[in-house]
């Protein structure tokens, strides 16, 4: 609640509005305060302690959690996995989504059906999806083996192989997200004035030139937006990894949120997990701030 101690005259109406405003936003701000803002402060605090959540007392250990983190080879591996996941999914997913959006944006039959099917993974429960994919990747009886054998190759032991497990996760993440990106690209394509294409056609431009000279540059705000959304989305990846690989084998698919979960809720290293959470926070904040900066400079919405 707000108090007005300053000698400022408010009309009766202003006063009533101030109260109504406060009452309207109070639930939201209370919850945001407790469950969104306070956690940042509390995570920072916890990151200076050793605590297993059961013990009544927390042991202050200064910067030791951060020192341990710097010396923890798994942390660096987790960070690398997280970045590889983010970079590779974004690149492949966006390229595929753009291709599909261009195809779907033509006047064709059954457009809505195609769109609905391609979009459907966006809304499906990731746990269930991960279950099916785990079975698809089964090296002996999985669906994927059919196609791999068909082209004369031998199926890798996807989720059990250090070098194939992360690619498998990347495939699932792309599969789940390509429809969403496609729909956003389609919206972006619709905003490009058709006159531009008509003019280009008059000049005898091929569709290929049209794409690179008109579509691609004018789509840059959309591409930029999707890049950021995808990167942040894959930094938060958890469900698929928890179900399909538990971060393994040998941490080859362990990513930062899963590592936070393991430390906090499997091994009860609350302080260390809080330090990790803070690192995640800093990474995401940096990306978001860079985005706002760059968006102001580059993009004309």
């Amino acid at each position: 609640m707000k108090k007005y101690t300053r000698p400022l005259r408010m009309s009766k109406r202003e006063k009533r509005d101030a109260w109504t405003f406060s009452a309207f936003v109070f639930p939201n701000f209370l919850l945001l305060g407790v469950f969104v803002f306070w956690p940042i402060v509390y995570s920072l605090y916890l990151s200076f302690f050793k605590w297993n959540m059961i013990a009544p007392r927390k042991t202050f250990i200064g910067m030791m959690n951060y020192v341990n983190m710097a010396n923890d080879p798994v942390f660096w591996q987790v960070l690398r996995n997280t970045l590889v996941l983010a970079a590779s999914t974004v690149f492949v997913k966006l390229a595929m989504a753009l291709g599909l959006a261009v195809l779907l944006n033509r006047k064709i039959r059954a457009k809505d059906s195609y769109r609905a099917v391609l979009f459907s993974p966006t809304f499906t429960t990731s746990v269930a999806v991960a279950m099916v994919w785990g079975w698809i990747f089964d090296p002996n009886f999985g669906l994927l083996r059919v196609f791999i054998n068909a082209v004369g190759l031998r199926s890798p032991n996807w989720l059990g192989d250090v070098s194939w497990a992360l690619p498998a996760i990347i495939i699932v993440v792309i599969w789940s997200g390509v429809g969403y990106d496609m729909v956003i690209f389609m919206a972006g394509l619709n905003n490009i004035p058709t006159e531009l294409y008509d003019a280009a056609k008059v000049d005898g431009a091929t569709p290929w030139t049209c794409f690179w000279r008109i579509t691609f540059p004018l789509l840059s705000p959309t591409t930029f937006f999707l890049t950021i959304v995808s990167v942040i989305g894959s930094l938060k990846a958890f469900d698929v990894i928890a179900i399909m690989t538990d971060g393994g084998p040998m941490n080859s698919t362990n990513v930062i949120v899963y590592y936070i979960y393991q430390n906090a809720f499997q091994w009860f290293k609350t302080g260390y997990a809080s330090a990790l959470a803070l690192v995640l926070f800093v990474i995401i904040m940096t990306i978001t701030l860079v985005q706002t900066r760059l968006a102001r400079r580059w993009v004309h919405y």
């Binding site: 803002f37 956690p39 916890l46 926070f281």
Partner: peptide, 21 residues
């Protein structure tokens, strides 16, 4: 502005504090 700032904070950071609360 405070409201918009909350949009940037990933929920995954809050797991432990929320559990404690």
């Amino acid at each position: 502005m405070v409201l918009l700032a909350a949009m940037m904070i990933p929920g995954q950071v809050a797991l432990i504090p929320n559990y404690v609360v």
